[in-house]
Simulated scan of single mutants.
Amino acid sequence: MSNLCIISFPGSDFAPITLECHQNLSEYLTIQNSPVLFGCRTGICGTCLVEVIGEISPPKLDEQEMLDTLAPYYPHARLACQVDLTANVEIRKIEQ
């Protein structure tokens, strides 16, 4: 199993990014390389709300409470700053 994860952004003009697994997305995704924006980077502002398609661990309780409020109709919604990358994923920005 590879220790690299590919993050792709379908439906956007951004090229895929390769990171080591378990890297914090908020430290590597920028306005120059992804459609994902970050505010607080701690999971309380909701700025980095995205839809994630791929194998990732489920959200922790605090993140789930935010997701229930911000994106109740998106089953794959996550806060990008809280995602633990363990495999290749696709990320789409959720417009609020």
Rank of each mutant, 00 (worst) to 15 (best):
K93L: 14
I7S: 00
T42L: 15
Q32V: 07
A87P: 04
L79W: 11
I91Y: 00
S8G: 09
E55Q: 13
I91E: 03
L85Y: 05
V83K: 07
C5V: 15
E55Y: 01
V89C: 04
L4M: 12
Y74V: 00
G54M: 03
I7W: 08
G46M: 02
S8Y: 02
S34C: 06
L4S: 07
D13F: 06
G39V: 13
T42S: 15
K60E: 14
A80C: 07
Q82R: 15
E63D: 11
H76C: 11
S8Q: 00
P10S: 04
E51S: 14
Y73H: 12
Q64Y: 08
D68W: 02
L79T: 06
V89T: 04
N33Q: 06
L49K: 06
R41P: 03
N88S: 05
P75H: 10
Q82F: 05
E20R: 07
H22A: 08
C48K: 08
S12L: 07
V50F: 13
G39S: 09
H22I: 07
L70S: 01
C81P: 02
C45L: 05
Y28V: 12
E20C: 03
A87G: 15
V83Q: 05
L37F: 02
V36G: 07
S8V: 08
G11W: 10
Q64D: 06
A71I: 04
E20T: 02
A80F: 10
H22N: 15
T30S: 00
A71D: 02
D84W: 07
K60Y: 15
E63L: 12
L61A: 08
S26N: 12
S57A: 15
V50G: 04
P35A: 10
P16R: 01
G54P: 06
V52H: 13
R92M: 12
N88T: 07
D62Y: 11
K60S: 12
I53H: 06
V52D: 00
L70H: 14
H22G: 08
I31E: 14
L49E: 04
S26R: 13
S34D: 07
S26F: 09
Y28N: 11
E63A: 11
N88L: 03
I31M: 10
I91D: 03
Q64E: 09
K60P: 10
E65P: 04
P16I: 08
I6L: 02
L61K: 14
F14R: 01
P10D: 13
C81V: 11
E63C: 02
A77Q: 09
R41A: 04
I91G: 02
T18R: 02
E65F: 01
Q64F: 07
L67N: 02
C45D: 14
F38P: 04
Y28T: 03
G11Y: 04
P16Q: 01
F9G: 08
Q64W: 01
Q82T: 09
L49R: 03
T69H: 11
F14M: 13
L4K: 15
I7D: 00
K93I: 14
T69I: 06
I94E: 08
I6C: 05
T18E: 01
T86S: 12
G54Q: 09
T42C: 14
D84N: 15
P75Q: 01
P72R: 11
N3Q: 11
C5M: 00
M66C: 09
F38W: 07
L37G: 05
D68A: 14
K93D: 01
E51P: 07
C48H: 10
L29G: 03
K93Y: 05
Q23M: 08
L49N: 00
E51Y: 02
E51V: 06
I31W: 13
I53Q: 00
